[in-house]
């Protein structure tokens, strides 16, 4: 591999994030004996799985210069609908289909608000989040539904050999999203719309379809996350997705996907989600009190984005040098 290619891989593709991850692992191994145990590693992957599904699902919305702030709401509502239908005695596939339709439906609502009504995604999806949360509250009140059938619990807590089923779901969805966003023409259209929607529109790319596409994908992934969370916890209640909202957005941004649109990748989002999960895991291993944990998480997010800006700066300087004046 020549120098230029290595340089491009390291900076432009953001491979230095892997190094951050490795450094964190090495540090945690030194500090804590239990870090490298198989059970802890599986635990990390299990913890990361749901965040990963949300993050790779919502990457498209940010690539298209938008955002999805409704995913926690959609996740909660889908989880609740799933639990509600199960408790009413319907079979597992019906419950899952009901939850998925909630996700797809909200995706269309978001796509409609952003693409047709042209309300900025930051505002419209934020509003939709409250609508979803409100519906979940109306459905559930303050009840917690639990005691789901074994076949449903298998989705979130089962094992295939040594591998948790939850991790398999995350891998499948991540692989699909990788192919879709980075290898398909639809993914490339999303990048184009995010980088300059006017030029994309004048060039014959349907911006409207793109907005629908990214939001339906994001909401569907949120619904899947809701179903898996309900299964993993063996419980469903209103607000169950709340804590994931900003973590999912932070994973994407830490992963180097630009809020300015048209720039970023799925791999970065995976690394972002793993970094955030490792922080939480590490703090638990180190017995850092749960009151102090948000402070550390916040500091790491700021630090990660700062690093990213610095890396881009180096890259930018190189580009300026290369540019013809």
């Amino acid at each position: 591999m020549n120098k230029e290619k290595a340089y491009s891989l390291f900076f432009e593709k953001g491979l230095y994030r892997i190094m951050i991850l490795v450094v964190m692992c090495v540090l945690l191994t030194c500090i804590s004996d239990s870090f490298l145990s198989l059970s802890n590693i599986m635990n990390i992957f299990r913890q990361a799985s749901i965040l990963l599904i949300l993050a790779v699902g919502a990457t498209g919305t940010i690539l298209a210069k938008g955002i999805d702030l409704s995913l926690a709401g959609v996740m909660s509502l889908s989880g609740c609908v799933c639990g509600y239908v199960l408790n009413a005695g319907y079979p597992v596939p019906v419950a899952i289909l009901a939850a998925l339709s909630v996700g797809i439906g909200f995706g269309f609502v978001n796509g409609f608000l952003v693409g047709v009504v042209k309300i900025p995604a930051f505002v419209s999806t934020y509003g939709v989040k409250y609508i979803a949360n409100g519906l979940a509250l109306m459905l559930m009140g303050s009840n917690i539904f639990f005691g789901f059938p074994e076949s449903f619990l298998f989705l979130g807590v089962g094992f295939l050999g040594p591998v948790p089923v939850l991790v398999i779901w995350a891998l499948i969805i991540t692989a699909i999203m990788y192919v879709f966003l980075e290898r398909s023409k639809f993914g490339h259209q999303i990048y184009c719309v995010g980088a300059n929607s006017t030029a994309a529109f004048y060039s014959g790319i349907s911006t409207l379809r793109t907005y629908f596409m990214v939001h339906v994908i994001s909401s569907t992934c949120a619904a899947i996350a809701g179903i898996l969370q309900a299964s993993r916890m063996n419980a469903a209640q209103a607000g169950m997705g709340e804590s994931f909202q900003m973590l999912a957005v932070a994973s994407i941004v830490i992963g180097g996907t630009s809020m300015a649109g048209g720039e970023g990748n799925v791999i970065g989002g995976i690394l972002g989600a793993l970094i955030l999960t490792l922080i939480t895991n590490g703090m638990n291993l180190l017995n850092i009190s749960s009151q102090a944990q948000p402070l550390v998480t916040g500091a790491v997010i700021v630090l990660a984005v700062f690093l990213d800006v610095q890396m881009k700066h180096i890259e930018g300087k190189k580009a300026v040098k290369a540019a013809i004046a």
């Binding site: 184009c192 980088a195 300059n196 030029a199 994309a200 014959g204 790319i205």
Partner: peptide, 22 residues
């Protein structure tokens, strides 16, 4: 503003209106 995606490559831009057909 309407013709080009400035921060994309020359190749990306030339193919902008046709890559979806391929």
């Amino acid at each position: 503003y309407q013709g080009l995606i400035l921060r994309f490559t020359v190749a990306n831009n030339i193919a902008l209106s046709v890559f979806s057909r391929w």
